[in-house]
Design a protein around this nucleic acid. Structure first.
Lengths: 215, 215
DNA sequence: GAAAGATGTGGACGGTGTCAACATCCACCA
DNA sequence: TGGTGGATGTTGACACCGTCCACATCTTTC
């Protein structure tokens, strides 16, 4: 959690045993502290919950302090979006690596499935951050998740499950499917669906994606 | 566009030569006028663009006037969301009806495809309204679009293209696919994709959905 | 025709993002 | 060594927002 709640200010005289979280007076590394607080806020209340003055308040600093580190609110939100994308990519990778199946084809299919499952699971576990991650970001800001999906699809080709012809542009339909599901069930109109039903729906979605690549 | 610009309200006192925009004193049918203005604002700037005071200003009425007709801002936004959903459902129906193919199987497939295409096209033509339509609405508020998709799928079963076993819960994967696509390309990270590429991507998505139902 | 209710107005309050002016502290150099 | 310039944080102000309350005005109803 990187809590930098230290107060042993400045002291430059030779001796410097700062424990890697705080630096000098001016509150030390305010930027990172602000981002962290903003992430918490984004997690709790989504994009609109990231309000500069509240972030400053929670960080124990005056409103406006943030303007020394971020151009404006959007700039800060973008940083939270980055964190969300990283968290998402992380979970995808973790889930993918957990697959222990040997048979190449089954393994590739299973890993692709896990990638999609992780995408959706993250959106359900962290609806706020997920929403932030895709709120007002443009392509260049996008990092992580796409790569893992791409790798999983490559593996499907290598294993002979997915034909090279169908491989081209295959990321998109997969992405769209899980992204739409995530949107609908995390913060969208289906967010109140009972867990059992939701799980069944997710499995059906992943089945259909699997079908669509095989045929 | 469903503009409900009706103004001939009551007026029982013989004489009534109001020129079709105003009715009686109290601005007449303020509610509908406000909704219409809010829809325009939502179309131009999305959910966050629907701001009560601006709606009032554009409607030529004091701020606060809206509070005689809507509990709060969310209440007004919900009304705009309804309009967005109606517009979406409308386009889906229109596109579906336009299909002239005779062969039952081809016809069913084609109609399903048109439903999906319309969904995406609407999101691209009216990104603001589309965003509003799915912003903070819960299932009970949802109207229209789902039914048309359902019908198209039923037709696929009737034509023998889609097996009854796969029919169960088939709405969801289809919906998720087009919804995700719409999100990513209308206001999401892929919104700057060149039109040609985007069209190709959409066609591939619809191909994959078709595949996933057949196999 | 007067009272009761519906509808629109004006003003106020607390909250927000952002700008400008000011205060403080660090690092560096004479 | 000590002073200064630039980075960093603070205070105050402004315009805008959603919403509440008191008041004004029109309509309907008895």
């Amino acid at each position: 959690m990187v809590v930098p709640d230290v107060d042993n200010v400045n002291i430059k005289t030779s001796d410097d045993r700062y424990d890697a979280a705080v630096s000098s007076y001016h509150h030390g590394n305010l930027r990172e502290a602000l981002v962290q607080t903003a992430v918490e806020l984004g997690r709790e209340k989504g994009p609109d919950g990231i309000v500069i003055r509240e972030v400053a308040r929670r960080t124990g600093v005056s409103h406006n302090a943030a303007y020394r580190h971020f151009a404006d609110r959007d700039d800060l939100v973008r940083e939270v979006a980055r964190a969300g994308q990283l968290g998402l990519a992380d979970l995808m990778l973790t889930r993918m690596r957990r697959v222990r199946v040997k048979d190449p084809v089954e393994r590739a299919r299973r890993r692709l499935r896990e990638v999609g499952k992780a995408y959706v699971e993250y959106s359900l576990a962290e609806p706020g951050l997920f929403a932030v991650a895709f709120s007002g970001v443009s392509l260049p800001d996008l990092i992580g998740p796409y790569e893992h999906l791409s790798d999983a699809l490559d593996e499907c080709v290598a294993a002979g499950f997915l034909s090279p012809a169908k491989r081209e542009g295959a990321e998109l339909p997969c992405w769209a499917g899980v992204h739409g599901f995530a949107m609908l069930y995390s913060t969208g109109p289906l967010q109140d669906t009972p867990r059992r039903e939701r799980d069944a729906d997710l499995n059906r979605l992943l089945d259909r994606i699997d079908d669509s690549l095989r045929s």
